[in-house]
Design a protein around this nucleic acid. Structure first.
Lengths: 244, 244
DNA sequence: CGCGAGCTTGATGCCGATCAATGCATGTGG
DNA sequence: CCACATGCATTGATCGGCATCAAGCTCGCG
């Protein structure tokens, strides 16, 4: 293929039925037969290199995207230029749900490392979920889960202190990575301190200091973006115990 | 009816086709014919008196609810008892979307005044939106809009200062009330200072002080829960201008 | 090798939390 | 009808956590 098309301008072929993310992604809980019908829908992939955007605020909404490899952030910005990271997405997670509302995207999606996504034309998804009840059911669950997740972030932003926020963030990340077969106790952060801070409603200095504090207390080992979790329970206690 | 059933245990009849909230609620943008089919779905109403819950965290999820009259708050709580108001809902707005994800509700919905809701059995909604494409489309938009709204709240909680938060809150409330035919410049708050504070990530004293400050500056007239907006533009400027 | 983006750490200040007292409206029972 | 309780709101005094400002450090990369 690369011989006839060395520049790789031609989009890559996607196929849910042979994808190892089946259990985490849109096809979750569907039958093999149903998943094969999904293949007609999710036909192409796109690669996004680190730092590039998959879509931007204001872009016309056409498709949802399932992260296949790599890592993304989404961020909204207010008219005065303040911006806020609203989430980090890893393999199997969906991007673009915000666009359904107004047919335009209301946030930016930026790749934090070289990434590939499967393109899911939304119009076709609506059509197919008309035919496949299970697809409709799964899709609704995914949207609802996003709402529940957002409520969790509101709780974090509205009522937790810096240490609790960072602990909750790390536990959430490792839990999601663990579901994907990675270690529970070691991770490499794909985002900067500033991006973590934006997500958690903190300044980058506070994030950095809190990392250092956790390290001093023996909860973590921090080497730049390499994190090792030494005391999982202590982090959990931080999140779950009352702030006062 | 009340003769045969003086205790009113029998649910009230609902009907989207004769409802004046058509344009704000689930039927938005649907044809008259389609709305009549909705009537078969949205058949009963429930009344909830002030202070009571429509559903609680952990309750089995059966139905969505459309607020017909009254006012609600939704709140999530963490294991240690901290809780966070995640939204305020007024007529035409949907409650219960959080439940779709896990078949259990993940927040409490509490009536802040005597209220009535239309009960929308979710299973039937899924079925009907299978038949009526426009219903599916609208429903997806409503869920997406909720996600976008939540992102806005994250921006507020993550990057705004107390005055900006309260200004944004008041403008949002009056804008929604205005769509329902109420004044743009006067409103009665249905929630306490503490509930506002919880929603905005502030303590009730801070909310109170900020109200007083706005009053001193001539932006508002505050008499307990009666608010009059004297300088709409100044509030808007507060929200939209950079914090530094 | 040296530049620059990102990270760490220190000093200081401010916004909002906390603690505490008072005020105000509503409701209830004597 | 008044006395009192109760829930909510206001206001003041003080405190603390995080932001801000500033200076160096680390590491990857051209």
């Amino acid at each position: 293929m690369s011989v006839t098309n060395p520049l790789r301008l031609e989009p890559l072929k996607a196929a849910c039925s042979t994808c190892n993310l089946r259990e985490l992604c849109l096809p979750v809980g569907m039958s093999n037969e149903q998943i094969e019908r999904l293949d007609t829908l999710v036909a192409i992939r796109r690669t996004i290199t680190r730092g590039e955007t998959l879509f931007r605020t204001g872009d016309a909404f056409q498709s949802l995207y399932a992260v296949r490899t790599g890592f993304f952030k989404t961020c909204v910005s207010s008219e005065d230029g303040r911006d806020q990271v609203t989430g980090f997405q890893m393999s199997g997670e969906l991007l673009g749900l915000d666009g359904i509302s107004t047919d335009r995207h209301s946030c930016d999606a930026v790749a934090l490392e070289d990434s590939t996504v499967c393109v899911i034309p939304y119009h076709q998804l609506e059509g197919l979920s008309h035919e496949i009840t299970d697809l409709q059911r799964v899709f609704h669950k995914i949207m609802s889960r996003e709402i529940v997740r957002d409520h969790g972030v509101m709780l974090l932003l509205g009522s937790m202190r810096a240490e609790e926020r960072l602990a909750a963030f790390l536990l959430n990340l490792t839990q999601r990575l663990h579901m994907r077969g990675y270690s529970q106790s070691a991770l490499i952060l794909r985002m900067t301190r500033e991006e973590i801070g934006s997500y958690l409603g903190l300044k980058l200095e506070t994030v950095s200091r809190t990392f250092s504090k956790f390290q001093d207390e023996g909860l973590l080992e921090v080497k730049q973006r390499q994190i090792r979790i030494l005391d999982h329970d202590a982090l959990k206690k931080l999140v779950n115990s009352a702030s006062c």
